[in-house]
Amino acid sequence: MREMIATRDAYGKALVALGEREPRVVVLDGDLSSSTKTGMFAKRFPDRFFNMGIAEQNLMGTAAGLAAAGKIPYASTFAIFASGRAWEQVRQSIAYAELNVKIVATHSGVTVGEDGGSHQSVEDISLMRSIPGMTVIVPADAVETEKVIMEIARHKGPMFVRLGRTKVPVVFENGCDFAIGRASTIAEGTDVAIIAAGVMTAKAVDAGAKLSAMGIHARIINMSTIKPIDEAAIVHAAEQTGALVTAEEHSIIGGLGSAVAEVVVKNCPVPVEFVGIRDTFGTSGSSEELLEYFGLTASHIMASAERAIKRKKQG
């Protein structure tokens, strides 16, 4: 049984470690510091933490100003507010000026659970990915989250990191060497490639193990950087397997699947099957129930892999 840790918990811990190392790091939150876990940083570095209240537009603008004053702001709130409520502030105040703000959004996707559709962002990757120059990162587990939080401080420019509320399995028990813009191959395979991000990476690993038992050899790719996406990894996977599946806890409109498809149709057209949320809002329920309800499971990935392989053979 793999250890279960929420990526937001890993964020809170990493932020404190980063704060010790990098004095320019400041943190902003919008009355959600106990949920986003920035409260850990606030406790350790009260003079470098700013609670901006329930006012996300001003939160993003203030983060922009701090960046313009030479700080490295980490701006946190729920994904729906960071990407939706404050979208135009992220665009105009932060991204248009290429300011060095790290937006770390928690409570993304349907695994928010019981709070329901109003709070479940299924559009945030799409919204952030469309802003010119914005880097978008979706870590798979707690280990990768820690790496991401430390690494992004070393690179200038606006970035959006998507984290979750619920506990998720640790995929990278033996560590991972995260680099912005580089996919990591978790398992080799030549029959089909499953490209996943966030909570779906663990599901993809499970699907890969079960497919392997059935004699189907799936390559499992963790695409934690959605933008800039690792084109070479996608092209190699398409050329070497001829069939792709994408898996994301996000709308299939504009998210990881779309980003992969954009590369595939231009370079190496092969069948692609999309596992994701199909043009609908979330709803209340437990996070595990919702993953099942929206078809975000290992068995859905397996069925999609079989469909992609079948389409490849028909082609």
Partner: peptide, 13 residues
């Protein structure tokens, strides 16, 4: 509507 927020960030910095 966005300039004063950036001013707040600069002033804090």
């Amino acid at each position: 509507g966005q300039g004063l927020s950036m001013g707040v960030g600069m002033a804090l910095g």
